[in-house]
Design a protein around this nucleic acid. Sequence first.
DNA 1: CTTCTATGATGAGAATTTTCATATTCAAAA
DNA 2: TTTTGAATATGAAAATTCTCATCATAGAAG
Lengths: 224, 224
Amino acid sequence: MKILIIEDEKELAYAMGAYLADENYLCELAFTLEDARQKLACHTYDCVLLDLMLPDGSGLDLLATMNHQQRLEGVIILSAKNSVEDKVKGLQLGADDYLPKPFHQSELLARIYSVIRRKNFNNLNTVQFEEIEINLLSKNVKVNDQEINLTRKEFDLLVFFISNKNKVISKSALAEYLSGDIADMFDNHDFVYAHIKNLKKKLLEVGGNNYLKTLYGVGYKWEK
Amino acid sequence: MKILIIEDEKELAYAMGAYLADENYLCELAFTLEDARQKLACHTYDCVLLDLMLPDGSGLDLLATMNHQQRLEGVIILSAKNSVEDKVKGLQLGADDYLPKPFHQSELLARIYSVIRRKNFNNLNTVQFEEIEINLLSKNVKVNDQEINLTRKEFDLLVFFISNKNKVISKSALAEYLSGDIADMFDNHDFVYAHIKNLKKKLLEVGGNNYLKTLYGVGYKWEK
DNA sequence: CTTCTATGATGAGAATTTTCATATTCAAAA
DNA sequence: TTTTGAATATGAAAATTCTCATCATAGAAG
């Protein structure tokens, strides 16, 4: 489970990071909005801990953007202000929980666990992208309500693309994801081509659109 | 592959980060010794790029600590000084390479690759159980110094057994581990039998002992 | 001790995954 | 614009993985 901690009080941020690391969460820290945006652009997290007052702006702006981009991360707002307006605004903007500072580590942990669990039960079961509907649990995929059979690798590929839509994904990242192993730089990853070809073919056969753009020399991007 | 860039010239640090990110390394930046120590306390990297002259001290001190703590990271010293003493001292303190500034990106890349490779091929990546020797990186397996070819699943199975030796492992745990997916209670996991059979056969063919006990109705246990 | 049932083992075949040789396409250099 | 080298696409073959039918065995029940 990966957590992004957006918090400009460095001492607090490091303390949270260390504590959560102990609990086997993978943590990354962002001390500014800009830093947070960078990290969110490159990575997907399971949960984001968001301080509202940051040196370069309000966390609420970031929250609005994330909501707008339909990010899947659970967001817990950490705020010292503890104003009702912020809390309401935060939850309206799609935050999943609000934790006033100061808080106990155990409480933080409990909230994180609950947010991740809730997210998982809401979003994890089905994912939709235009005419494509994926049930992550049963692993069924429908295109225009017509069911198609994908192999495991094709399914994984589709899910990975859709959950990273609009982002550029390198071939080696795909290789790593599909093989479930660190991608050796000096291996060739031609099997990725094969699975992409087969996935494309199956989607087209049932009248799906091709959302997968090839970015020569760079990778792939799934977008409308 | 994760790289920690310890470098106080921010522009250079960002440039390296961007370049290495392109090459599919995950990079983190530290601009001070303190920052670097924090990050090293929380994370493990595959390679550390270390500038020697940092605002809050000399990188050599950090190197000494890392050496003392027997950290596994490969360390490449980046230095503008290019003094023979620093180079000697750095290598004595356990650095793996020394790259005088300015350098070309391609050279940096080559050094990183070489350092990671060297680190990875030493015996830190091998696991031994009696006559069986496994290199986790190259994925070679030797039985009585004789190399055998295992498929990916057979290899994974062997590693899983040996790293859980003397413990009882259920069939569904094996299924989950091999498939890299939560094991569906209502699936049958007969493929586990197949891989176990094939692994056993290959090990016996080269004169290995059978360390795998079947616990009827319970699971398996790897023990001498 | 025998029978019965569920679990595990096995071989063969089906399906999937990966590799490989070849063709095509892209973008930089000439 | 044309050429060139590298990246991507593709079909088919090779290798691996999974399924299935059948057999063997452990342990419970009679």
